[in-house]
């Protein structure tokens, strides 16, 4: 069974952390992953940087620009990760935009992921219908889970469709925004969290966007299975480097 599905069966709320590969330094990838696991993080999203990250706010944009300047590429990331499963056992997901995957070759990319022990992909600009028609078989052939996003504006009908295509978890974007744009949740999010919980979807949901501390983590996971932190973590490594990751994680999930 895929590590993601296994993890989702555990009877606890999950903390997933996103970081941009190649940032702050080109060779930080392995250190960040190992330190995150040691700090008790449940799942990791490894960001493959892209020149034009449409869905990201300034924090992740800047980290992507810097990572590309540092020389990060798909090929280099795969090289860095080749022995990762000797030391790390939590689920690892690659998150990025579709174009670099397309240029690498979708099948070649998936095959490489399987060899390394990557468990899933999140490609926000790969539409669910295109995935279902053209790529689902390839992903499944290489044991990869594809994760799709929903937002407060996504209709119930479309959420049901996304649920039917998914086989892992649903990435629940907390508000209509780019990453890192808003912090904290209001009544609108409460309503949205309740609405989704009441839909009794077959895939568990993990909330992302707007989570930066213990309070927002607790709010997000009241009903959802877990929460994802991206921009706040990038800010932490920007300010403190990669050696105090445990401090950051302790503050979220004591």
């Amino acid at each position: 069974m895929n590590r993601i599905n296994q993890k989702l069966k555990e009877g606890k709320k999950l903390l997933s952390i996103y970081f941009t590969a190649g940032y702050p330094n080109i060779n930080d990838t392995i250190t960040i992953i190992q330190n995150l696991e040691k700090s008790g993080v449940d799942m990791i999203e490894i960001g493959l940087p892209f020149s034009d990250p449409l869905a990201d706010g300034p924090t992740i944009q800047d980290s992507s620009t810097k990572a590309l300047q540092n020389g990060m590429t798909s090929e280099l990331l795969f090289q860095q990760l080749k022995d990762i499963r000797k030391t790390v056992s939590i689920p690892l997901i690659i998150m990025g935009y579709f174009n670099p995957v397309m240029q690498y070759g979708v099948e070649a990319f998936c095959k490489k992921c399987q060899e390394i022990g990557i468990d899933g992909l999140i490609l926000p600009d790969l539409p669910v219908d295109v995935y279902a028609e053209q790529y689902k078989d390839t992903f499944e052939k290489y044991g990869l889970i594809s994760v799709f996003l929903i937002t407060p504006q996504t209709s119930d009908e479309r959420i049901r469709y996304i649920d039917s295509v998914s086989d892992g978890f649903i990435y629940m974007v907390s508000s209509a925004s780019t990453t890192g744009a808003k912090s904290g949740f209001g009544n609108a999010q409460e309503d949205y969290f309740n609405r989704i919980a009441n839909m009794k979807l077959s895939n568990p949901q993990i909330v992302g966007f707007g989570i930066s501390n213990n309070e927002t983590f607790m709010q997000a996971t009241k009903q959802a299975k877990g929460a994802i932190i991206g921009s706040a973590f990038i800010k932490h490594v920007t300010a403190n480097g990669v050696d105090t990751i445990d401090t950051f994680v302790d503050n979220i999930k004591p």
Partner: peptide
């Protein structure tokens, strides 16, 4: 080829 946030 758009993120779900733009879909609606």
């Amino acid at each position: 080829f758009i993120p779900e946030m733009l879909y609606p």
